[in-house]
Write a protein that binds this DNA or RNA. Structure first.
Lengths: 171, 171
DNA sequence: GTCGTAAGTAAAGATGCTTTACTCGCTGCT
DNA sequence: AGCAGCGAGTAAAGCATCTTTACTTACGAC
């Protein structure tokens, strides 16, 4: 038995309780991403969308060619190339000669990108900590969040394998 | 203490366990939506994207003008008008004279749209039932899903209010 | 050498929105 | 009656972000 009955002190039917799991997930994700972007902007790291952050993460460990980046992001190499063009123009990545030669070029993050990544990580962790405090009233703090993470991780692994397919910014 | 340790029989670090809550939510949502769309297609209801389903839901209870639809979907009225144009061409909605007169036109669902909604609902419920069975191994069936739904609903209500802002198909 | 393969680039097209700017039908005032 | 104004609807252009198609270039194998 869950504490479902205590989750909403108000009277009347709860539209959210009847919502499909899929939509609940979508709402939660969208709200968190929205809050994330807003805070990042207020912290002086505006002008970049979540998709750019995903690219930064894909390049974090030693960079990659734009074709590798394309694969990690789940887009065509042309799309990745355009993304790299834009990020290069704005000073977040550099194209360096690739050790393996060929036509390859290694795309690496600049200091600006690393600063952005750090700020983004901080915002995400702060956000998660706030959520932890507000979740699962009545239980010990953090327990509800841990359970939520466990169930979500299991769900993702069941449906998407490990590692799961890339997150795409449109559905 | 959760059954986290039993969730992954393999050795080595678990990349998903270290993932941010936000990304877990995104992955779970995207995977479910993807599976939903694939099944709906296989059931003979292909060619419509999730956004169309959202429009159907917004029109389900007695229809609406396209401006009302725009508000419910969180887009401009022009975008809603284009959406209605397309759905009308494909036989999913009709524009009828509006009882309140003016330039208003009431957009209502056709039988085809209602059939689509029914099929979509069935797929969603089936999917949710499957998820319920695979979640929270070791607990009584359904308990993990109920807890997940509770926590998600609470999270959504905290961040987005009630009802939450419209789900947008891009972030 | 030349052939195949993979990386990268170029250009056009598709899509799904927004912005800007208009027309039309009604209400209410004077 | 006449007209100001408002909200619904429509039209067209612009824009961002992707894909598709098609090419060029570097290297390795044989």
């Amino acid at each position: 038995m869950t504490d479902h009955a205590t989750a909403r002190p108000e009277h009347g039917p709860d539209p959210l309780a009847g919502a499909e799991l899929t939509f609940l997930l979508g709402w939660a994700f969208q709200l968190l991403i929205g809050e994330f972007t807003a805070r990042l902007e207020r912290a002086g790291h505006g002008g970049l969308r979540p998709a750019h952050g995903l690219a930064f993460q894909a390049l974090r460990a030693g960079g990659a060619t734009s074709s590798e980046l394309a694969q990690r992001l789940g887009v065509t190499k042309q799309a990745a190339g355009q993304l790299v063009d834009e990020l290069e123009r704005r000073g977040y990545v550099r194209r360096e000669p690739h050790p393996a030669g060929g036509r390859r070029r290694l795309v690496v993050l600049t200091e600006a990108a690393h600063r952005h990544l750090e700020a983004a990580g901080h915002v995400l962790r702060t956000l998660e900590a706030e959520v932890a405090g507000r979740l699962g009233a009545g239980k010990e703090p953090g327990a509800a969040l841990a359970g939520l993470r466990d169930e979500l991780a299991r769900l993702v692994r069941e449906l998407g394998g490990d590692p799961p397919p890339p997150l795409r910014p449109v559905w």
